[in-house]
Computed example of a mutant assay.
Amino acid sequence: MKKYSFLLSLFILLIACKKHSTTIALIPKNKFETKIGTKQVSLYNLKNQKGMTCQITNFGARVVSLWVKDKNDIFTDIVLGYDSIEDYQKPGANYIGATIGRYANRIAAGKFTLNDSTYILAKNNGENHAHGGVKGFNNVVWDANQLSESELQLTYFSPDGEEGYPGNLTVSLLYSLSEANELKISYTATCDQETPINLTHHSFFNLNGAGAGEITDHLLSMPATKYIPITEDALPTGEILPVLNTPFDFTATKTIGKHIGANSEQLVFGHGYDHCFVLEATGVKLAAKLEAPSGICMEVYTSEPGIQLYTGNFLNGAIHIGKGAKHYERRTALCLEAQHYPNSPNQANFPSTILKPGTTYQSTTNYKFGNK
């Protein structure tokens, strides 16, 4: 009898573990159902056939939660986020999980010259323009159309003069979950007047789980042999320098924390890593590999020429209180933002970011997940 009792207990335990591994604590949609201005805000659930699940709100085209399996076959939410639309409207939530535009990263002095005309942009980063301005694409309501259980299309019309940018711009964004456990992000855009455009995705990742301590133990590798140094104001100097023999060399896998405290002026200027790495390959190519002690692995593929590594240097647990009342402290998440180089409209030696009428902006970034 004892033998059968033990087997029954073991069977019940296995069933409980299996149930736990497939349990995902989704945020209720009613926490996001509201109107901002005249537009309806909602929360959308995407799921693939393997159970990978992503929640997205059309406010800022933001990823709110992203559930993938760890090495113990347990679903884990690996992105920072908030439990309600009200929390996303607070200043501290500006970029968490959002789509950034019209121009990701910084534009020096909040201005640029195009076709002999100088355009003055909103200044929201000291004397500079950052991540699209005071009301960038992260703080507007996108039109949403859920195409299937695993696909969500979002569109936004940015009028001429918004945040100082020239021309009317229409942006379409497709989020999809593939059966290869990829979060795929595809952007297209058209305009009626020449304008700079540089879109990126700004999820804060912690592959041990959102709010589960520092990401300095994550292993990172990037094929980039060059990076873009910055000034004390986090603006690019205009140089493109080799990573060899610097703390910025991730061509061989190492922990993020290995050199983050090194005696480096660049790390002082960035308060850690906050730099764009140059991707020299063309087409959609591997930009980064990330792995955590949880066993969760992430690969980033993109058509963009650069990827910004940001190690959550300005997260502050007193301000950033996220899902489940977790305090998001400094360096408890990181961003890998596929994009063009910062301040490109003012740097003739950087690849152009100017979109012309009659042409279509196209960009792809895929975050692929697995576990070990």
Rank of each mutant, 00 (worst) to 15 (best):
K39V: 03
K123M: 07
T237C: 09
G211A: 13
K184I: 08
A144E: 02
Q193M: 12
F277R: 02
A348N: 13
N245E: 11
G270H: 06
N168A: 12
N198F: 04
L177H: 03
T200V: 04
N30Q: 13
G101F: 05
E299Q: 13
H327F: 04
V243M: 08
N349A: 09
I96E: 03
F204K: 00
N138A: 14
S84N: 12
A93R: 04
L244S: 12
T255V: 10
L267T: 05
S178H: 12
W142S: 03
V171N: 01
T251Y: 10
A104Y: 07
Q193F: 10
G213I: 14
F11S: 14
S344T: 07
E86K: 11
V171C: 10
L235Y: 03
N206D: 09
K3P: 06
H218W: 04
D274P: 06
I96W: 01
V41Y: 00
E299V: 07
A98H: 04
Y119K: 05
G283P: 06
L66V: 11
T34F: 02
G312P: 00
A189Q: 04
P159I: 10
L336W: 01
L154F: 09
N346A: 07
G81S: 08
Y165P: 00
Y273E: 04
Y227M: 09
S42Q: 12
L207D: 00
E214T: 15
T302C: 09
T200D: 02
S303P: 02
C191Q: 01
C191H: 02
Q153N: 14
A287R: 01
S84Q: 05
P159V: 10
Y44F: 15
P247A: 12
D249W: 03
G211R: 01
L315A: 01
I24P: 07
V284A: 14
T23Y: 15
G161W: 13
G257H: 08
S294E: 09
T237S: 11
I215A: 02
L173E: 01
R331D: 07
N313R: 07
P342H: 04
D70L: 03
W142C: 00
P159H: 09
Y88R: 02
W142F: 06
K289C: 13
G37A: 10
N115W: 09
Y103A: 08
F137P: 00
L267Y: 07
V278M: 09
E280F: 12
I185F: 02
L14E: 11
P196W: 02
L169D: 00
H218V: 04
L7D: 12
L279D: 04
R62M: 03
G51E: 08
I319Y: 13
G136P: 02
L355A: 09
Q146Y: 07
D192L: 12
Y310A: 05
I36T: 05
G110H: 01
P91C: 12
N94T: 15
Y103W: 15
T118C: 10
T99Q: 04
E232R: 09
Y187W: 13
P357W: 09
L147D: 15
L219V: 13
Y156M: 12
K372F: 11
Y119Q: 07
